[in-house]
Nucleic acid binder design. Structure first.
Lengths: 175, 175
DNA sequence: CCGCTCATGTAACTGGTTACATGATTTA
DNA sequence: TAAATCATGTAACCAGTTACATGAGCGG
């Protein structure tokens, strides 16, 4: 029985939290998310819920109103158990380790830029990160529930730490 | 002309930095990395360098010693230009935005655990993160060059911020 | 009636994963 | 000489991406 992907775990978790969901609603959730990682493309979500339903982790039930078709998915007991196993404990190395960060990756190679370009890079990064942080803080204010708020705070904390680190680097690099 | 993936960018960057590289050496680099993200599987690296060579971004040259075959890859001018474009500026939203973090993701659903399990989760997370941080700090001490050191400091800073955040959550959750 | 949103899906592709296969060279 | 490491690769698979297709319901 293979591990769930992050997306699968999230979907099960969301269904656990919100009750009956349509694939469409799940999609909107990912599309509206403040973090840029989740694409929520139809080609990801629809096959995914079908897969989970086939494995008996979700159960689909027809909830069409009038002539408009609509499928609501609910969590089965097996689905809940599987979700809990994904959630942990125990936590895998992959889960606790430093997440990969494309900005940090680029820093390894900053020496390839001419000083002028490098300064430009740092200015650009700082400005865009500040924008992003503001959006995250705004989104965080609409948190529902304790753990939602704590998780959202996590992304704000991360961005602030990243910004502080960047400023340190800017100082170091301008010397 | 599509965008380079992170892995492709990293490979070009590494070749830029170290000069002629074998695919094998690139692989060892990823395998030995302290961050858990990079798998460095042969099935990723070998097709990747072949692809880049076919696109004229890398040039392969035979550097077999004796009967043992070995291919060294070097960066072409086009490859360097492409690498610079990947590096930025400008930086994309994806590059500056909060990286996705599987630990944070799980926090949204911590309410699904019974208090006892939740406490266990937090203890487990803290212990494993501390281990990981220690490994990162050790790896960081062997940094070569300014930007290598700054980037490595970045992952340490991230982990410390994540740990501080986790402890805040632990307090909040135990109330 | 036109366009937008709700709602569900498929098709082609792609980058990366695990697992396997091969052979030369070094070291215990 | 046996085992580990150097070194290169292929095959099967898989999750997620973009782009496309379909149709109902609703507001201006």
């Amino acid at each position: 029985m293979r591990e769930l992907t992050e997306l699968e775990g999230c979907v099960l978790g969301h269904v656990w939290e919100k009750g009956p969901c349509t694939a469409y609603a799940l999609r909107q959730m990912f599309l509206g998310s403040a973090s840029p990682h989740w694409s929520g493309s139809a080609g990801a979500i629809y096959p995914l819920v079908q897969r989970l339903a086939r494995q008996g982790l979700l159960r689909a039930r027809d909830q069409a109103t009038g002539r408009r078709r609509s499928k609501g998915y609910v969590l089965t007991p097996a689905g809940f158990a599987r979700f809990l196993r994904w959630l942990g404990p125990p936590l895998s190395e992959e889960t606790v380790g430093v997440p990969m960060d494309p900005l940090r990756t680029r820093f390894y190679f900053l020496g390839a830029l001419k000083p002028e370009q490098r300064a430009q890079f740092l200015v650009d990064a700082e400005a865009k990160m500040q924008d992003h942080l503001a959006r995250l803080e705004k989104a965080g204010r609409q948190s529902e529930g304790l753990y939602d708020a704590l998780a959202n705070r996590g992304s704000v904390v991360m961005m602030k730490a990243r910004l502080a680190w960047l400023r340190g680097v800017s100082e170091e690099a301008s010397k």
